[in-house]
Design a binder for these strands. Structure first.
Length: 772
RNA sequence: GGGCCGGUAGUCUAGCUGGUUAGGAUACCGCCUCGACACGGCGGUGAUCGUGAGUUCGAAUCUCACUCGGCCCA
């Protein structure tokens, strides 16, 4: 009997052919029906080469969600988008062309950004396609397209009209390198070394002094009060006294406040505008008048006197020098300080009062908490990230950014009276470059307008992805069918941004939650468990790896190595070793391809046994697939296929399948069981390794794609796992025995078969060439 | 300071509703062409399950303390 499959190994080159077939047959096309399964796919951001291997693993798994849902009989809508707004491409463009954004013509700068994005995007799309992502590539969208930005602006206009947006001058997180305000969500904390300076402040009308410790001595110019803890007895006698601030010689009051920590520094703290968020809160609480000492250019302002024009770091050095000259420094300690840093530009932020637009979010927190409770998180533990974040929200969301490559804020201002004009929704506006749609100011009738130059925080765009893909405001019928989405897959580091903002925005705009399930994945780390980054040089480029090994090997690695929700390590050698399993599957199939596929057969004890184990496997896989945890089926399938089916069952029935020494009925029982088992394995594996399973399926079982099949359901056969142990142990015993006697595996041997294995006697005898 | 998660052989990991000779993968070593597969088969080395205490007849598994690592929030 000749096998239908002649090649001895799975050739990843075949993936290209299969990909083409899928494309031609349009097997993943989406036509909305009454019930749909919408995936709110994360649009990846093309920020540079190479694309992150962890992201490639992530998208592979998102595709497994889609395929699992399809095989469960769901009508899957799997949109593909590319996120193209925001700071990273601006920084990339500035570096690439050695230019400064603010010194470049805006239109020209935008074009350079667009070109950079196009290049990077092309490679990402290529990788996604090669990975076998079964998304809707024909209609892939971009968040910087006219349609997308129209929606972003329309939702802004809608919320403006509802009174959810306001303009306010407030101390804000300011990233002076990017020259823009950023939201709390865009701040990360880093432990950075700094100096804690103990300064001497004179107490007025006495010759006494108190010690103030600060990491920001340059802010003495903006010091408005000194606080100590009310329980701190060291300072009781000074409460209410005037203190002379060195350098400026301004008098400030010493008062008590519970936020002063007795253990930190000297226990007395200077409150300046603004060293940190606590200062902001204190200025507000105590009604202090702020002094702006750091300007938008990131340098000291005139208010800093002789230090004006210096960068804060330079001013700090200078001030410390000056204080030392005057004997006003008691000591300086080197400490590690948890410093707020801009997530994008990685520099410590300053807190500077600026006028920005805000979207109300504080009053939505309780509602969002409730929505969060209604959403199923996979894994459950990551819901906590959202809840912790909600607990810490205490200001509204500043949404305006002083950058170019983003969705423009659609507002014009009357040149005469400054009255803002917000246009009608449904159109894409670029106020910095376009005439105001009305000719006269609604308030003063003046005819001259100035367009707003700022753009939105990119999360204003990303946070409406479920609305965009469901054609909100554009096609109501479509919207009603596909919204809310079924699931939001995403990485865990953007729970407080993307996930939270999406909940907020969708709730504000539709009153409904955007999805019923959230699926949260961990980070991809390097082989030592360190974060991968281009600067560290430990980034792995996924593209050559996928081209060399094939998508299925990569995907199987992703499924079998990544326990859902936890961080995972990426190691090329490990990825490569997964090829072995595909090879095993290929050769099992190659063997089976020599036997005809038959509909039924008389089952022997061995057949019934392996089918009961197969049913256990189906149950186990279902458990994993039900919660979109592919680790469970991947491990279980590999274990069953390799260590049970191939190692034991196939060896046991080989002779029977060939019909040597067995009746036709017995032979057919084996052949039937072999094919039933393999076809089940293929279907179970199809969401994880779509290529090889498709190829084998079509050769062996059907012209119709495996990805059009329904997933196998458990038959609830009574388990025989006790027997499994007996069988595998007996086989091991025989193999060991032959080995110790230096016999070849085909040589005959005399070994007693245990009583419990009596029903399997004939198969075992032929397998091991046992003699009585 | 608070929260979440984790610490099982060189590496990754399963087991954690208490009783397993602690399972698998990978790496390593040895032997082997047996009518699918050397990207294979068989066998082997390798884990006092982070540390300490408690509960229990019995703990990797439950409780507490400590410790280390990662992340998040003050």
């Amino acid at each position: 009997m000749e096998p239908k499959i002649s090649e001895k190994v799975w050739n990843p080159e075949l993936e290209k052919k299969i990909l083409k077939q899928w494309e031609e047959e349009k097997i993943y096309d989406f036509v909305p029906q009454e019930d749909n399964f919408t995936i709110d796919t994360p649009p990846p951001y093309p920020s540079g080469r190479p694309w992150h291997i962890g992201a490639a693993a992530h998208y592979s798994q998102i595709d497994m969600i889609a395929r699992t849902a399809r095989m469960a009989g769901k009508n899957v809508y799997f949109p593909i988008g590319i996120d193209r707004n925001g700071l990273p491409v601006e920084l990339y463009t500035e570096k690439k062309h050695k230019i400064r954004m603010r010194e470049t013509d805006r239109e020209e700068f935008l074009n350079l950004c667009r070109n950079a994005l196009d290049d990077l995007e092309a490679e990402m799309i290529l990788i996604m396609k090669n990975l076998g992502i079964s998304g809707d590539f024909a209609n892939y969208y971009r968040t910087d397209s006219e349609e997308y930005r129209t929606l972003t602006q329309s939702t802004f206009i809608d919320l403006w009209k509802k009174g959810q947006i306001y303009l306010a001058n407030r101390p804000n997180n300011y990233d002076w390198v990017s020259g823009t305000t950023i939201a709390d969500a865009e701040i990360i904390y880093e432990d950075l070394p700094t100096k804690l300076v103990y300064m001497k402040f004179k107490i007025k009308d006495t010759d006494q002094e108190i010690i103030i410790a600060s990491t920001r001595p340059e802010l003495v110019c903006a010091c408005k009060t000194i606080i100590v803890n009310p329980k701190d007895e060291r300072y009781t006698q000074y409460i209410g006294k005037k203190i002379i601030v060195p350098i400026t010689n301004v008098e400030v009051e010493l008062r008590t406040h519970h936020s002063a920590q007795q253990e930190f520094g000297s226990g007395a703290v200077m409150v300046c505008s603004y060293g940190d968020q606590n200062d902001v809160a204190l200025f507000r609480e105590l009604g202090l008048e702020e002094i702006v000492v750091i300007g938008l250019d990131g340098r000291m302002t005139k208010a800093a006197g002789e230090y004006a024009g210096l960068k804060p770091k330079q001013a700090r050095t200078k001030i410390i020098e000056d204080l030392e000259i005057n004997g006003l420094v008691e000591k300086i300690e080197d400490i590690i300080h948890r410093t707020p840093v801009s997530e994008r530009s990685k520099i410590p932020i300053e807190i500077i009062p600026m006028e920005e637009y805000y979207l109300k979010q504080k009053e939505s927190v309780e509602k969002i908490k409730k929505l969060g409770q209604e959403i199923t998180f996979h894994p459950t533990m990551h819901k906590q990230i959202l809840m912790n974040w909600l607990e810490s929200i205490n200001i509204d969301w500043p949404i305006s950014r002083r950058r170019y490559y983003g969705t423009e804020i659609p507002i014009w201002y009357c040149k005469n009276c400054s009255e803002p004009y917000v246009p009608e929704p449904g159109k894409y506006y670029r106020p910095w470059n376009e005439k105001c749609p009305i000719s006269n100011c609604t308030k003063c009738n003046s005819t001259e307008f100035v367009g707003e130059e700022r753009t939105f925080d990119t999360w204003m765009d990303s946070s409406i992805s479920p609305l965009f893909v469901s054609k909100f405001n554009v096609d109501n019928e479509f919207f009603n069918k596909v919204y809310p989405a079924a699931i939001r897959p995403q990485a865990k580091d953007i729970v407080r941004t993307w996930l939270y903002y999406t909940l907020l925005r969708c709730e504000q705009l539709t009153g409904k939650k955007p999805w019923s399930e959230a699926w949260i994945m961990g980070y991809g780390l390097d082989e030592k468990g360190m974060k991968m980054s281009k600067s560290k040089g430990n980034a792995i480029d996924p593209l050559p790896l996928i081209e060399k090994l094939g998508a299925d090997t990569f995907r199987f690695w992703s499924a079998s190595e990544i326990n859902h929700g936890y961080d995972f390590r990426c190691n090329e050698q490990k990825i490569e070793s997964n090829k072995k399993f595909l090879s095993k599957l290929w050769n099992v199939s190659r063997f089976l391809s020599s036997f005809p596929v038959i509909e039924s057969g008389t089952l022997t004890a061995s057949d019934k046994w392996v089918l009961s184990e197969l049913d256990n496997l189906v149950k186990e896989c279902k458990k994993g697939y039900d919660e979109y945890n592919f680790f469970i089926p991947a491990i279980a399938i590999r274990e069953f296929t390799w260590n049970l089916f191939a190692a034991h069952y196939i060896e046991m029935v080989k002779a029977r399948a060939y019909g040597i020494g067995f009746s036709d009925e017995e032979r057919d029982g084996a052949i039937f069981t072999l094919h039933k088992t393999l076809s089940t394995i293929l279907k179970l594996l199809a969401p994880i390794t779509p290529f090889i399973t498709e190829h084998l399926w079509k050769i062996l079982y059907s012209k119709e794609s495996i990805h059009k099949q329904k997933q196998v359901e458990p038959e609830n056969i009574e388990t025989q796992s006790d027997i499994t142990k007996e069988i595998t142990e007996f086989n091991s015993k025989v193999w060991n025995e032959k080995k110790s006697q230096s016999l070849s595996l085909k040589d005959s041997i005399k070994i007693e078969i245990p009583k419990i294995l009596e029903p399997f006697k004939k198969d075992l005898k032929s397998m091991h060439n046992l003699v009585d």
